[in-house]
Design a protein around this nucleic acid. Sequence first.
DNA 1: TTTGTAAGTAAACAAACGTTTACTTACTTT
DNA 2: AAAGTAAGTAAACGTTTGTTTACTTACAAA
Lengths: 201, 201
Amino acid sequence: MRPKNLIKEEAIRSIALQIIADEGLENLSMQKLAKAAGISPRTIYIKYENKEDLLIKLFIEEVLGAYEKAVLKNFDPAAPFAEGVRKLWLNGFHYLINNRHAFALIQHGKASPLLNRAYQQKNIKEGDFFGPIQQFLTLNVEAGIIKYFPQEVHRALLFSPMLDLVAEYFDYQTRPQQIITPETILACCEAVTQGILISKK
Amino acid sequence: MRPKNLIKEEAIRSIALQIIADEGLENLSMQKLAKAAGISPRTIYIKYENKEDLLIKLFIEEVLGAYEKAVLKNFDPAAPFAEGVRKLWLNGFHYLINNRHAFALIQHGKASPLLNRAYQQKNIKEGDFFGPIQQFLTLNVEAGIIKYFPQEVHRALLFSPMLDLVAEYFDYQTRPQQIITPETILACCEAVTQGILISKK
DNA sequence: TTTGTAAGTAAACAAACGTTTACTTACTTT
DNA sequence: AAAGTAAGTAAACGTTTGTTTACTTACAAA
């Protein structure tokens, strides 16, 4: 039996991400993708059931999986709160600005009903997505260091500004001066941290 | 000369928004839209140059315009900082949870290169988009009440968690218990406010 | 070295795409 | 009341869509 050509599999995924980032999800077609990857449309269907299957696997496995790994790299849930948040911010920020295509699909994941549903199902099936972060937050709530919120709310407060700053970073890449510097990121990280600390009166 | 039927114009816009919210931008087609609105495809082309023109006008005029108006309703740039932010949060949150279709297109605006470009151009042409908020922030920076950041960064810190919470609100609408309550919103609003205040030591 | 078989290709399928053509309708102006 | 005209329709344009059919290729196992 002829073995799968893994290089072609990788080409499909990376070129699909590139088209989505440059032209949007609405402009990705199977035929365009095949032509850009230098393969027959049929070959895509050997590796993926159909277009939806390709998009979902791209989003969940290729993008979210790698993003989670990058964010959690060298992260210690037992670290002091401010230090832990800083680690997560810097990991996430550096990964995303160096992986523009992945960031683009993450943004699509918040807009497209198809990807949104897939994400919700993944979150339900594997409750431990970004598990160490949940553990980290629970520890700090129980220690009376930060305010209690449901985990989704904690995530919105702590990390959604970071994603917005990545978007601004890319916007400013085409302009003469970048305003999203490493110092900006650290200052913003401190601000969100300060926001959910229980203030010592 | 036969006058334009404004009811049909409104139908095109509202049904387009509905399709985008329910099926995603990638599943909106001119023929599908015409059929759903009970009109001929040609009629859409009387009011819009082409599909891109329709999407951009929907996004900029119909959605962002109305959103800006709702957020700024009864907002006073001279109000105390915490009070002003609270007003903006409540205005925005209530508008978005009552206008699911508008929220969906705003999310697409962050993902789709077409809409993203259109937004950037609008922002460059009319520098006063969300002008009263800029004024409000400048006032509070100059008074030494809040930390200085570029306006885009201020907006990321103050408002991106709110949009994320709206997304969570809709996610939880299909589940037995809503976790994003008015109390949650107020508590989160206080957290982001606390984050950018200059702490009195 | 031959053979079995899944991986891969080129070409095609019907359906749907964005947009236009040819025509009719309804209202304003005279 | 008649004429002029932009709004509107039904049907079609050529192209592209997602997916499949019929065939070839390249490798593992025998």
